[in-house]
Nucleic acid binder design. Structure first.
Lengths: 151, 151
DNA sequence: ATGTATGCAAAACATTTGCACCTGG
DNA sequence: CCAGGTGCAAATGTTTTGCATACAT
């Protein structure tokens, strides 16, 4: 099992996707890039944009994210809680381990699980097209925070 | 890896959960029971109820499903598409393999994957509380349907 | 210039809630 | 009878859309 990191996305990635290079799109890419360790909701992104002084509408955030998703630049995940979260897609498949306390997200790839999933699809007669795996838990930071040093 | 089936739920399961045995609740249990092979949305359930001639409101469907979830009678899943789907919970943990063509859902448990997930949580320092795994693919039926017999 | 993007406001959905009425134990 | 359950309609929160204006190429 190996953890993963990522590489920055920029203007040329937008052009390659057939999208004009506009300020909202660049800003959104930038914020996603600065928050690789957590997954942001449209609302999160919107607030972050306002904080940087940009006057960008929530509708634009949604539109841009949808376009980015179609272009394969970001992945959309439907978490618990009725709203979607987004992360940059650097091309490589990976799964997620999510902290239920602080929302931190780590990514991993495990060949044994990958292999086993293929086997299961075959055994059940399915032709596998995709899969998604989430492990939920309490991350090291939150775990320590909950252990009082005197007890 | 083993596939799973289920056993019916009834009035006593409602009582055990501290819920009055009412017509809407029984009907909803019944419909869930008759559709174990697919996961139903609140809207699906609502329509199914109307078809059986029952005059049950959508709000009640949501309320009942939420209560059932709290009571551990059903599980709620957040699929792609912005809405939730529900399935009866027969107590045993299991994962899902979903047909992207027809919505058919099969359930399975794989000890190797279960084990590996625990290992990954441990390696990354997380205390695992839960996990969810979906394999998406094309089920045998849909697969055959797409293969013309003359070609 | 000119086809796209954007911002705003309104619309569309999925889900929840308030409240008067109904019903199971 | 009476607490809990239900239906309806209105409220909520998220995401989408229509349209006039602004911008990238």
């Amino acid at each position: 099992m190996k953890l993963r990191t990522g590489a920055p996305l920029e203007s040329k990635d937008l052009r390659r996707a057939g999208l004009k290079v506009t300020l909202p799109r660049l800003k959104i890419l930038e914020i996603l890039d600065n928050n690789r360790q957590r997954h942001l909701s449209a609302e999160d992104l919107y607030k972050a944009l306002l904080e940087t002084g940009e006057d960008i509408g929530l509708a634009t955030v949604y539109r841009v994210l949808t376009q980015f998703e179609a272009a394969g630049l970001v992945n959309r995940h439907h978490f618990e809680g009725g709203h979607s979260v987004f992360e940059l897609d650097d091309g490589a498949h990976h799964d997620h381990i999510v902290c239920v306390k602080c929302g931190r997200v780590d990514e991993f790839v495990d060949e044994i699980i990958e292999k086993r999933q293929k086997d299961i699809a075959q055994e059940t007669g399915y032709e596998m097209t995709d899969h998604s795996l989430y492990i939920y838990g309490i991350c090291p930071n939150c775990h320590n925070r909950n252990r009082p040093r005197s007890a």
